[in-house]
Design a protein around this nucleic acid. Structure first.
Length: 228
DNA sequence: GTGATGATCTTCT
DNA sequence: GAAGATCATCACG
């Protein structure tokens, strides 16, 4: 029988995600988002993530899709943890989240940026970019810096991936730990929140400092946190 | 490098 | 009917 090549690292368990997104988001930094496609293996290291809290918290996170309770769009967020929540935004892009918390409670982590690791040429094709064969910092950022860009590069679309269990061995779409260690992260407010939103300044965005693929304004400041 | 603008369409009110 | 967890492009300094 034909045996598929082993995927890098170890699959993250559901327990990893069955807690507050404010704990999950920083822990996801350095992990691999992996997508096994017909055209080849795609994978990127998570370098930026944001937490969106469920409506059971006080005060309510009014920037979160789940803040008014379940709707047809956000129902995945109220199910089991570790599932992909993929939605369309601004008519032409997708954003990819991982559901957190126990079943019945919402909460998720938005994956905002990756550092490309596997399938670079295919990522470039997905992004309609010319592939030169060398991965400069600039090219890496053009591939997967930003939630819309990384979905395009990783071939993530709502119709195929919304609701997929990222913790299943059978899934072509997973998050894995290849042992990469992150010693220091930066916390900042989230990107793209409406200025009139009370949650505008909540420090719920985590990045790997200095990574070329981190999105958003470089001027955005935050606090450094050292992970023991 | 930074900042403004338009594209484009789904979702919820 | 309005807003939106964005991006590419263009002007400007």
């Amino acid at each position: 029988m034909i045996r598929k090549a082993p995927l890098p690292g170890e699959l993250l368990s559901r327990a990893f995600f069955e807690t507050s997104p404010t704990l999950v988001a920083p822990r996801l930094l350095g992990k691999l988002l992996v997508h096994r496609t017909e055209a080849g293996l795609l994978a990127g290291r998570i370098v930026e993530a944001e937490a969106y809290r469920g409506p059971h918290n006080d005060p309510i996170d009014t920037a979160a899709h789940a803040h008014r309770g379940p709707t047809p769009r956000n129902q995945v967020l109220f199910g089991h943890a570790g599932h992909a929540y993929v939605y369309a935004i601004y008519g032409q892009y997708f954003c990819m989240n991982v559901s957190c918390e126990a079943k019945g409670q919402a909460g998720c982590v938005l994956i905002r940026a990756l550092e490309p690791v596997y399938g670079l040429e295919l990522m470039a094709r997905n992004r309609h970019m010319h592939w030169t064969g060398s991965l400069t910092d600039r090219v890496a950022a053009q591939l997967t810096s930003g939630p819309g860009r990384l979905c395009q590069a990783m071939a993530i679309v709502r119709t195929s991936h919304n609701g997929v269990d990222l913790t299943s061995r059978r899934s072509a779409f997973q998050i894995r730990d290849d042992g990469f260690e992150v010693s220091e992260v930066l916390v900042t407010p989230r990107i793209g929140i409406n200025p009139s939103n009370p949650a505008l300044d909540w420090p719920l965005r985590w990045v790997i400092p200095g990574n070329p693929c981190v999105s958003g304004p470089k001027s955005l400041s935050g606090d450094r946190i050292f992970i023991p």
